[in-house]
Amino acid sequence: MLGYIIRRVLWIIPVLFVVSLITFSLMHAAPGGPWDREKKLSASTIAHLNEKYGLSDPIHIQYLSWVGNMVRGDLGPSYKYIDRSVNDIVADGIGTTAHLGIMAFLLSVILGIPLGVIAALRHNKIPDYLATFVSVIGIATPSFVAAILLLVFFSVTLRWFPTHGWDGWAEPDTMVLPTIALSLFPIAQIARFTRASMLEVTRKDYVRTAQSKGLRERSIVVVHMIRNALIPVVTILGPLLAFLITGSFIIETIFSVPGIGRYYVTSIGQRDYGVIMAMTMLYAAAIAVLNLVVDVLYAYIDPRIRYS
């Protein structure tokens, strides 16, 4: 097991390397650069800027120096936020983003799994239709629509929660709407996945055996069905958690959450190369690590899986 984990961890390195190489090339291949403005900078200013940030070097030199710096923990300067380093920007926002992501993840799991279980146990009955209706809406509604609707209804009309800002546990009411908005899609996703998985388990021999042995309904559901039905659900939880803790552009933008999620999109528009690289690597690393965690968890939750 330990050997397996070590091998998988070592595999993450080439994966990240390839991701960084592709991102770096695409980013520099895209037309435009960090110094494009509607009010143009003078040619000499652009030359000075390129010199200052090392952008006049050949592209492979730039890549190597980026790798070298990153390995030493230096993510470089931001071209857009002139007085701040990328390290600074990431360090400033990642706590908030991860906090929001974990809250949304917990909410999704706590609501999504029971919703799916109930739907499956009352298959083709009213609760199933209700739960399916809710999750279809959750899947089909773009998050910016849901976020704005929440904002207009709960903040403007009812005035229960502030429209913007984030103060963590110091002011928990600032966390409510972003958390709900961020978890709507995952709740629906988890519910649908759980329902499908539960329905499949219902037809399994061991469930029929348990029923024919006359076990209590509750213990069949909890011990034999849910436990087995959740194995495939765990598979999607890894990437989901990676997605949630690295931040959502839309939710952070609409609710003005000071996280790093906004930079995924804004840094690309601004050709802020250092920030683009940092965000991509962060997301790639989160996906890689959490997929590994899921695979390791399998060994514990599914007796049929053993790593050597």
Binding site: H99, E171, D173
Partner: peptide, 23 residues
């Protein structure tokens, strides 16, 4: 743990003054 990690930055802000409460 993550909540604990993020709280120092938020607790340095004077509470209540920067975030208008909705009600």
């Amino acid at each position: 743990v993550l909540a604990a990690c993020t709280s120092p930055s938020s607790s340095t802000e004077p509470s209540g003054s920067t975030q208008p409460s909705a009600s």
